[in-house]
Design a protein around this nucleic acid. Structure first.
Lengths: 206, 206
DNA sequence: TAGATTGTTAATCGATTAACAATC
DNA sequence: TAGATTGTTAATCGATTAACAATC
């Protein structure tokens, strides 16, 4: 069933989630697909279509209850409970991700940071001590993180993913170039910040 | 003419660019749409369609010359010359972006970093000293950066964008929440890392 | 009840893929 | 020349939008 929902739809769910959270914080308890669409620059149709991929969450004549829709989307995205994840690479970017508070409550909680640079190992980022990469195998056996952030130098990402996959990691949030299907059954979310920057360059030309 | 090319096409150009650079580094001088498609997981048709939005860069019976196609795409994306940009917010993320070497040669060069925290002002990130935000107006008048990275706390992004827009900044690479059309004529590339993380959460469920 | 807004089906639109003549 | 591969048109596919009956 899940396989039938297009990625375009899935990528809009966090947008809805974000906007609904705003409404909730503003004390607004209900919203219609029309209102939401206007505020977010989408059509009401699209919002209803998207949501109805997963169920019927609204009520005719009324609209959607903000806080229950938030709960539904959180359930769909599987972010109701934070699962343990680790960060590989404690450089600038790895450090920024490790220190970010915006990621809490998005389905994951940081349990470990690893690096191979002995100048960094032992230091704290937020509340988490950076461990040496040699400790990785034991750590994974004990903590069983299912997701890993890759923030390592370009060339090492594939090897890191293979190793982590063998240690039980199933999903990768990869900032270190492009990886695709190198490990059986693993899921990759590749972030190419440079690509995004280049499209900005294109669009600012007139 | 430019308005007629869809964003989906534009977002694939950096992918092509990246892959072609790899080929070039490997000493490969020619490639066909078939080869490229296979390597990148796209159809040959799509690659030819995409490129033909901008011109005819190949040769029948031969394919594409790698280094000249790289140059063509660089020209289209307007990344042949690096334009000055500034970073607003020298926290973890702003620091990571400022320090990143991956962004060089992508159309922009860092000329200034600004923050309002006097503990950070004066420190160096890479080769660039962090300036106080009070210096921003004078700096912009002198250096005329056309792009700014927003890496500030959520609530302050819109105000920052408005200010920068009034100082001549036309494009924003925004990591601080969502901004859209708050300034006449400005272009926004909104990066929502949390959204990306939530889609990963969804996809790792079975 | 009347008004509003959903869930859902049908119509449209755009993007991707296939096909093929042009040509190197 | 024969083979390969482009540029480009036509066909298909999927995603978005419009419409409307169901119903709160």
């Amino acid at each position: 069933m899940k396989g039938k929902v297009s990625l375009a739809v899935v990528r809009r769910l966090p947008q809805y989630y974000r906007y609904l959270k705003e409404l909730e914080n503003a004390g607004i308890t209900k919203s219609s697909s029309r209102d939401m669409g206007e505020a977010m620059g989408l059509t009401a149709s699209q919002i209803r279509q998207d949501l109805n991929c997963f169920g019927s969450f609204g009520q005719q004549g009324y609209g959607y209850n903000v806080s229950s829709l938030i709960k539904e989307i959180a359930y769909i995205l599987a972010i109701e409970e934070d699962r343990p994840f680790i960060v590989i690479g404690a450089g600038q970017l790895g450090g920024a991700i490790s220190a970010s508070n915006n990621l809490k409550g998005r389905g994951f909680k940081l349990v470990g940071i690893f690096d191979n640079d002995s100048n960094i190992v032992g230091k704290k980022i937020g509340n988490t001590v950076v461990r040496h990469i040699e400790e990785l195998a034991d750590f994974c056996k004990a903590e069983k993180p299912k997701m890993a952030v890759l923030a390592v130098p370009q060339g090492s990402a594939t090897d890191a993913a293979k190793l982590l996959s063998s240690l039980g990691v199933q999903a990768f949030w990869n900032f270190s170039g492009h990886i695709d299907a190198v490990c059986e059954g693993a899921v990759f979310e590749n972030i190419h910040l440079e690509d995004s920057l280049m499209t900005l360059s294109y669009r600012m030309e007139e």
